[in-house]
């Protein structure tokens, strides 16, 4: 194990996959000569050349479609979309082609592409650079969606996504690229399905993914220290398909549940997890589960308003305490 930053873990996965297979390519805006906005491809242009580490024009739908077409003839493209807000422009190719081509060709053709993109609210980037899109992509049949919450996952999920025969969307976060964590020294492939119990506890489950896993972990410490509540924290690193069995098993252990997401509530990850509670483990619940979500607004520029729009560990704590009458 060695400590590395999230971006370093991504860079290592890129480097290993480029080294492993001459048909792996990386493409995106400023990922070559400039080394990537978040450094995920730093130095790889010099190492592998312009044919394989490709600076694209600012044409998100076009270069995503190009990656998909290349994947039809055996190329394994890793496509970086600089901000998930720009991925809206590429939804045509992602949704109409990559996700559907296996099905509508009767299994003849697949689009084994990887799309990496940071989605999330950083620091005063305004409404058009702060959106979260995972809710959109996880609703599309034929597309896998994963969202690493730490460097180990960032490395291992990208490695598996490159090797997997399905199109995989990797949802990252602008605020997490400098996060440090342990990554195995040996090559490692993280499963693309499932969930992970990252803290054990008997009283309540806090479900999170990507950045909200960290709010849940912070909240769990406070709940334990100040309120004597032991929370289990479950990391839903796979958003599509969601781990129904893992969700059900945790609720069966704790009988109370919170789902925390950075995005707005309507038609979101929380909504979907709530539906799974209903369908899989309704009678295990001792109290109505609660969603912790963003305000349903375009993200404001003003720092105070921006902070008010996005949930935090405090909101997770408050939501958890609401399920323990007399504890607050």
């Amino acid at each position: 194990m060695s400590q590395m930053m999230y971006w370093e873990a991504l860079r290592r996965a890129h480097d290993e996959e480029l080294g492993n297979d001459p048909l792996v390519i990386v493409m995106g805006e400023d990922i070559g000569v400039a080394g990537g906005t978040y450094k995920a491809t730093q130095g790889l242009y010099d190492k592998y050349g312009a044919e394989r580490v490709i600076d694209t024009p600012i044409s998100e739908n076009g270069y995503t479609g190009l990656g998909i077409g290349a994947s039809f003839v055996g190329v394994k493209p890793i496509i970086e979309i600089m901000s998930v807000n720009f991925a809206w422009l590429a939804t045509d190719q992602i949704v109409n082609t990559a996700a559907k081509v296996r099905y509508m060709s009767g299994g003849q053709l697949t689009a084994p592409i990887v799309i990496r993109s940071p989605g999330g609210t950083a620091h005063q980037l305004g409404a058009q650079h702060s959106a979260r899109m995972e809710k959109v992509f996880m609703g599309i049949a034929g597309l896998r969606v994963v969202t690493p919450s730490n460097p180990k996952q960032a490395y291992g999920l990208l490695k598996s996504a490159v090797r997997c025969a399905d199109p995989v969307f990797i949802n990252e976060h602008e605020l997490m690229y400098n996060m440090k964590g342990e990554v195995p020294d040996e090559e490692f492939f993280h499963p693309l399905e499932g969930s992970e119990v990252v803290r054990q506890g008997r009283d309540i489950t806090l479900f999170g993914y990507n950045i909200s896993v960290h709010w849940c972990l912070q909240a769990a410490e406070v709940l334990s220290r100040e309120h004597g509540i032991e929370a289990e924290v479950v990391d839903l690193y796979a958003l599509s398909p969601l781990d129904r069995e893992g969700i059900k098993a945790s609720v069966a252990r704790t009988h109370k549940a919170i789902i925390a997401e950075e995005a707005e509530a309507p038609v979101g990850v929380g909504a979907e997890v709530m539906a799974i509670f209903n369908e899989e483990c309704f009678f295990e619940l001792d109290a109505p589960p609660v969603r912790v979500s963003a305000a349903n607004v375009p993200i404001p520029y003003n720092h105070k308003l921006e902070k008010a729009a996005i949930p935090s560990a405090k909101d997770v704590i408050a939501a958890a305490l609401s399920l323990f009458p007399g504890k607050h």
Binding site: E51, R52, G62, G65, L66, A70, F72, V73
Partner: peptide
């Protein structure tokens, strides 16, 4: 217009190979 970029992508793969 959907196939325009797909066809360039195929061409990219063919050139690489």
């Amino acid at each position: 217009g959907g196939p325009f970029p797909l066809a360039v992508g195929i061409a990219k793969g063919l050139k690489m190979k």
